[in-house]
Design a protein around this nucleic acid. Structure first.
Lengths: 197, 197
DNA sequence: TGAAAAGTATGATGATCATAATATTATATG
DNA sequence: CATATAATATTATGATCATCATACTTTTCA
């Protein structure tokens, strides 16, 4: 081999990193091959040496978005006291920082609306992400002794995704903060994470 | 005037109707001028006699999406018993029918993720739609004697939008149904619309 | 009935984009 | 140091799209 043997693999990772960011910023369809390659410091010519088609590329980039990210963060504290783990996760998920980090953060809200229009592989990857996160939340809820932990986790995830998405859509900063704050409060209350009001 | 005086206005409405449907199906950016005109039974040539630019057109089409729709439905029953009105609304919003009607239904979930990338006018229209729907839900909750009705309404809307969006993203029909069912149950319970389990 | 004007269609232009063929650069090995 | 070759760049092609100029229809009124 010329170049060192990992050169191409590293380039591929860099391209996928940039694609993941670009998808968060522009959505999976507005993404252009040349644009992503330029962001990775390359020209568009070499693209097809890495990916067979744009569609396959988008599927790879979406899979890439699910590696790492906030779900991993919640998973890491699997052994921690469930009340603290869940409270911390809700506070992070519905924070101004998460809302404003338009190039990082949980992939679920970014891809939610476009998911039905993605390739089969990407839809499956998305569904797996939903199921995985629901399961982790349910595990923590069950550890807290909640009944119907799986049901409650599904409902809670819906509110997390919905509130973050609505907060991102709201142009007025105060009202956007209010959307986050209200769901933070209500989620913690209804999951029994803090004393009732 | 040649043609009758409402001819152009009717054509405009028809084009906007089709655009609203197309936005629900394809998203506000994948929409093509020629495609929408063809759906309305026209060719692309006359487009600029109706709209100054594609961007202005999209803003008009989005405003059009907010006229009528499920919010109007909830508004209509403003005088009805609040428990029945809210229960009916939740059951409709999180129904398989609403999930599957990819060319009708509440505009909030369709536009949610793209909202930050829309024109200022469209973002404002979107925010107005969120505030309006939150207000109506809050009014019903207040009529039920709930404290913090506005906060609770915001939290509930987040779950409505999130659950519908996640249900649409889920390729497996059973799991999609489950997402809807779980949020229907939990929403009604936490809003005090039915006896606790 | 005929001409003027409103509404719509045809066709053109330039931009952007995915894809692909070919050329060039960089570097590990002999 | 020379060369083979992996990795990337240049350039080309055809498709799609927004925009616009111009031509054609349709309908109302003189």
């Amino acid at each position: 081999m010329r170049y060192d043997s990992e050169h191409k693999a590293r380039t591929r990772q860099k391209v996928l990193d940039e694609a993941a960011k670009a998808i968060r910023e522009e959505g999976p369809h507005r993404l252009g091959v040349a644009g992503v390659m330029a962001r990775a410091g390359l020209t568009h010519g070499g693209f097809y040496a890495h990916f067979p088609s744009k569609e396959a590329f988008i599927a790879d980039a979406i899979a890439h978005m699910f590696e790492g990210g906030p779900t991993a963060m919640l998973e890491k504290v699997k052994g921690a006291p469930p009340r603290e783990a869940l409270t911390g996760y809700i506070d992070f998920y519905l924070s101004a920082r998460h809302r404003d980090s338009r190039s990082g953060g949980c992939p679920l809200p970014y891809l939610a609306v476009d998911a039905p229009r993605l390739s089969e592989a990407s839809r499956e990857r998305y569904a797996k992400g939903v199921a995985h996160l629901t399961g982790i939340i349910a595990t923590h809820l069950a550890a807290l002794g909640r009944d119907h932990a799986e049901d409650e986790a599904s409902s809670a995830l819906a509110e997390l995704v919905g509130a973050l998405t609505l907060a991102r859509a709201e142009p007025d900063a105060d009202r956007s903060d209010a959307i986050l704050e209200r769901s933070r409060t209500h989620l913690k209350r209804r999951l029994g994470l803090e004393a009732a009001q």
